[in-house]
Design a protein around this nucleic acid. Sequence first.
RNA 1: GUGGGGGUAGCUCAAGCGGUAGAGCACUGGGUUGUGGCCCCAGAGGUCGCGGGUUCGAGUCCCGUCCCUCACCCCA
Length: 416
Amino acid sequence: MEAKSPKGIADILPPESGRWRRVMDMGSALFRAYGYEEIMLPVLEHTEIFARGIGEGTDIVRKEMFTFEDKGGRSLTLRPEATAGVARAFVQHRLDKSGLPVKLYYRGPMFRHERPQAGRYRQFTQLGVELMGSSHPSADAEVILLCREFFSLLGIESVLVVNSVGDRACRPAYVDALRAYLRGREGELCADCRRRMEENPLRLLDCKEKTCGGVMRGAPDLGEFICTACREHFRRVEELLRVAEVEFRVDSRLVRGLDYYTRTVFEFQDPALGAQNSLAAGGRYDYLVEEMGGEPTPAVGFSIGLDRVMNAEPRLAGEGEEGVYVVAIGEEARRKAFVVAWRIRGMGIRADLDHMERSPKAQMREADRGGFRYCLIMGGEELEGGYLTLRDMKEGTQERVEEDAVWETLRGRMAC
RNA sequence: GUGGGGGUAGCUCAAGCGGUAGAGCACUGGGUUGUGGCCCCAGAGGUCGCGGGUUCGAGUCCCGUCCCUCACCCCA
């Protein structure tokens, strides 16, 4: 047996894991400040949830899902994204019954079976929000604003691109026009695009194949086919973004790889990141809930690719030294140190001690490396004198503390 | 699924034409019979990805294979 994690699936070790935790905690706090509550979703769903939600013809469903049969012969799939699961939960628990909108956020691992590369892993972490029940442009604007705020708090420069992909009323007409334009030009398209012509012609718009790009340059423009209602909706979203002084670019070729999107779609990109430069993406999905069997419920949301955010080197406030390392010299002192550390921890203060029978010097070094502000030293002298030595590792000073006064002293020091 | 690059110490990397495998960082101990960071000294740590071949001799050359990585594609 070889101890090795599966391809594209990685561990996140300390101290890196600490940076992840801080970013996730910051995100959660931010989402709550905007009125979103956490929904904790299962990692497994029935395969149909994704097949129907994301779209049978999408690459995700066609070739990127971890799908298997359980012992009862049901087909289950590790979630490749979260929105379909949120919609499923929304319908299953009749969340619309207790008042709209429902504002939820989630965080956790997603899975897609792709060839790994920079910024693309088979297990990756997403942080996202869904605002369900409102068709108002202010809902679109709120989630976009929230997403931008997330990046700005981390000091990450990102470019916001928005577009409208229309709805049931107008998109079919555009798709027809696109097909008509492409008819006769199939020979110039890549194999994937020839297939997509039937299943999801919109995807041809952002195909990166050179020849396809050439063909698409002359294609009808999505922006000109959008119906009046969608156009008006998009105009009001843009207006709100301007009021909030959000910089953005409209790109009528921006489409998403998931079928459920309608009207507003957007993406936050980091040009410095390489091929996988999309940090976050989202949009409106007004038909997904009814697709899942619920009441017609318009909704809008986004998802942040946390792995890519971490690759973008977020600026994090440094964590200063804190806590107490208990240094023990001699067996008797070790017994006592064990109890002292336990009591300090009981006070809610970070504390640690040596388990390796190391020298006092090595114990101090451990305290230094571990980022402890204080060392509480006890040895023969202290045991005899009935006091402890408290060393401030930052200032390099130390003082005697009477045993009975230790707890109060620590409590006082930790407060400031 | 298709290409490019690469696998040598825990990490980052060296080893002219084949000739006893090294450095920096990290780690452990010592320099201080009980005091961190800096410095000095010492130590520990390697199936040279794996298998086969050529050779007196292979980290080095040949064949195969696995893995990692970047890109296409896809997308967060």
